[in-house]
Nucleic acid binder design. Structure first.
Lengths: 195, 195
DNA sequence: ACAAGATATGGAGACAGTTTCCGTTTGTCA
DNA sequence: TGACAAACGGAAACTGTCTCCATATCTTGT
C-alpha cells in the first residue's frame, strides 16, 4: 500500500507540498481549517487535495505516520531491552510526553483509535499491538496481571489523547498513566471487586 | 438558569415535543440525523428547534440532564452510606453499566467532558465534583492515594465514554475501571516511578 | 526530439447541512 | 375582547464538502 506505486513527478511534488503545508499549519495549532482553503494555501487545487487525501483524517494520518512508526519502533525496542514492567512504564511516559508536545499527534491518535474499520484503523491497531506486546512480556515476566487486556489500556489512552491540550492536562495525563501502571501491577485487590 | 423562566404554553409544548422525540430517536440509536429533519419529525419548524436548542449538544444535554442528575445524586448517596473505597467502586461500576446500556448518555458525557467552557461544561463539572467528593472521602479514610487528582480519573472516564458502543467495549471498560480503582489504592509503588 | 498515450491538475459548480430572518400566528393579561 | 408580547415556521441565505471533466503535464517508445 505504501510502496508499489511509482507516483508521477508532479503528483509527488504536490503531495509533498500538501504534507509540508499541513505540518506547518498543524505546528501552529490550525487543525480545523477549511479543507478548500488549505488546498489553496498549499498551492494546489481542491481536486488535487482530495485525490491525494480523501479526508482530513487521511491527511493527518499521513502527516504523523512517521512519528507514529517511530513511536511503535521505540516500543518494540524497549520491550527487547528492558524488564517488561519498566519498558511499559517508559513507553507510556514517553508517549504522554510526545502527545503533550504535539497536539496534532494526540488528535490524530484519538481519531485513529476511534476508527473501527477502514484504512484509518490500521494506525491505531499498530500502536495497540505494540502495547499488547509490552503487556504480554510483563505477564510472562510475572510483573503484570493477566486479567486485563490491551483494550482497557487503549481506552485510558484514548481519554488522554482526547483531553490533551486542555489547561492542566499534563498533570492529569501523568496521573492517568500512573493509575494504569499501578493498576496493572496488583493481582487480586479488594477495591475492584464489584459483585 | 433552569428556573426563573415562565415559558409560554405553546413554547413549553414544543420544547417537550422536541425532547420526547429526541429521547425516542436516541433510544433507537439515531444520533446523527439532520437537525432539520429532526425538527420536522418532532412536528415543529426549524426556527423553533434552534430557539430551544441552539446546538445538537444542547439538545443531548437536555435529554440526558435528568439521568445525569440522578447519577450524581446516587454518587453523593453512596459517599454518605458506604466506606469510601466501596462507594467509589460501586459508583464507577454503575456508571459503566449505564453508559453501556445507553449509548446516547455515553456520547453526551463525552461531549460534556470535552467542553472546556460554556453552559455545556456545567454538566461535566457536576459529575467531576461528585467523583472528587468520593475521592476525597477515600483519602480521608486512608484507602485512596492522595497524589492523583480527579482529572486523572475523568480522563479515563472520557476514554470509556468515547469508546463506548464498539464491539467488546464492555469488557474493556470494565478493565479500565479495574485499573483505575486498583491504581487508586497503592500508595508508593515501583511501577509508576518515571524519572 | 517528438508523438501518443497515460496520468494528474484545478477550480467551477452541484450538493448537503446549518442557521438566520421576519411576516404570521398564538397565547396572555387586563 | 383588544392590545401587546412571545413564539412560530419555513423560505432563503450561507458555509463547507466533494465531484467532474476539459485542460495541462509527464512518460515512454522510436
Amino acid at each position: 500500500m505504501t510502496t508499489g506505486k511509482p507516483l508521477r513527478a508532479d503528483a509527488r511534488r504536490n503531495r509533498d507540498a500538501l504534507l509540508a503545508k499541513a505540518r506547518e499549519l498543524f505546528a501552529d495549532g490550525c487543525f480545523d481549517m477549511r479543507f478548500d482553503d488549505f488546498a489553496r494555501l498549499a498551492g494546489v487545487g481542491t481536486g488535487t487535495l482530495y485525490r491525494h487525501f480523501p479526508t482530513r483524517e487521511a491527511l493527518a494520518e499521513a502527516v504523523y505516520r512517521s512519528e507514529l512508526d517511530a513511536m511503535c519502533a521505540r516500543g518494540r525496542e524497549l520491550r527487547d531491552t528492558l524488564p517488561a514492567a519498566k519498558a511499559l512504564a517508559a513507553f507510556l511516559r514517553d508517549l504522554v510526553d510526545h502527545l503533550e508536545a504535539h497536539q496534532g499527534l494526540a488528535r490524530t491518535l484519538a481519531t485513529l483509535m476511534a476508527a473501527q474499520s477502514g484504512p484509518l484503523a490500521e494506525g491505531g491497531r499498530e500502536l495497540s499491538q505494540v502495547i499488547a506486546g509490552l503487556l504480554a512480556a510483563g505477564v510472562e515476566e510475572g510483573s503484570i496481571r493477566d486479567d486485563v487486556g490491551v483494550g482497557a489500556v487503549m481506552m485510558a489512552l484514548q481519554g488522554i489523547c482526547t483531553a490533551c491540550g486542555r489547561p492542566g492536562s499534563r498533570a492529569d495525563a501523568d496521573g492517568t498513566v500512573t493509575l494504569v501502571l499501578d493498576g496493572l501491577r496488583s493481582p487480586a485487590p479488594p477495591l475492584s471487586g464489584g459483585g
